[in-house]
């Protein structure tokens, strides 16, 4: 279990990890420090990508309390157009 505090260095490490590790490569995940927890927010293109983010963070920071609010972006057609008059 990590004894590391949830501080801004940890926040920066997690954010860089999610972008720079090829298996994730996400720049669109927001990392928010909340009490003793890191909250991960944003949207990804598949359930597998969300699962991989959580797996990687758990692997790299064992014992870290993480909350996830990562959604999978919907892909339905638009219901209306915007008229640019």
């Amino acid at each position: 279990m990590t004894e590391r505090p949830v501080d801004e260095y940890l926040e920066a490490e997690v954010q860089r990890l999610l972008t720079e590790r090829a298996e994730v490569a996400e720049q669109g995940i927001t990392v928010i420090r909340r009490q003793h927890t890191l909250l991960l927010c944003g949207e990804v293109e598949s359930v597998q990508r969300r699962d991989e983010i959580l797996r990687l963070v758990a692997e790299q920071f064992p014992g870290l309390s993480v909350q996830s609010d990562i959604g999978v972006t919907r892909t339905h057609p638009p219901t209306e157009a915007e008229d640019l008059l």
Binding site: R74, T75, P78, T79, A81
Partner: peptide, 8 residues
């Protein structure tokens, strides 16, 4: 938040 937007 959908597959594409449409602009006229």
């Amino acid at each position: 938040k959908h597959a594409y937007s449409v602009y006229h």
